[in-house]
Amino acid sequence: MGRNLFILAGTLLLFSLISCGLAYTNIAREPGSPGDVSLWRTMGLILLVISLIVALSGVLSTLFEQAERRAEDQRRNRRNS
């Protein structure tokens, strides 16, 4: 589960960087381009925040899975001893 969340967070971060990159280049200022500069910056910031939240949930998920595995191993060792 944690690996999938890290992949999702990386993808969202990539889209965030692309969106912010478009805001700071002249592509967003050309006539006929979608949206304006503030829209690209806002979308980049929103994607960045979502990416950070997903990465945090991935870290917490991995930590809890590791804690469960260690607790199960300790129980198994106690039974065998």
Score class of each variant (00 low, 15 high):
M1W: 02
M1P: 00
R3G: 02
R3I: 05
L5H: 06
F6K: 14
A9T: 04
A9Y: 01
G10T: 09
T11S: 12
T11G: 11
T11W: 11
L13C: 12
L14F: 11
L17Q: 05
I18W: 04
I18C: 07
L22V: 15
N26F: 05
N26V: 07
I27L: 13
A28R: 03
E30V: 10
G35N: 10
G35F: 05
D36M: 10
V37G: 13
S38L: 13
W40C: 04
W40P: 00
R41G: 01
R41V: 04
R41Q: 12
R41P: 00
T42P: 02
M43Q: 12
M43G: 02
G44H: 00
L45R: 01
L45C: 03
L45G: 02
L45D: 01
I46W: 01
L47E: 00
L47H: 01
L48F: 06
L48C: 07
L48T: 14
L48P: 00
V49K: 06
I50K: 00
S51D: 03
L52A: 15
L52M: 09
I53C: 13
V54N: 01
A55T: 07
A55I: 01
L56A: 15
L56E: 09
S57Y: 09
S57W: 11
S57T: 13
S57M: 13
G58S: 07
L60C: 12
S61W: 04
T62N: 10
F64I: 14
Q66R: 07
Q66T: 14
Q66V: 14
Q66P: 00
A67G: 02
R69G: 03
R69W: 06
R70M: 10
N77A: 15
R78E: 05
R78C: 00
R79H: 05
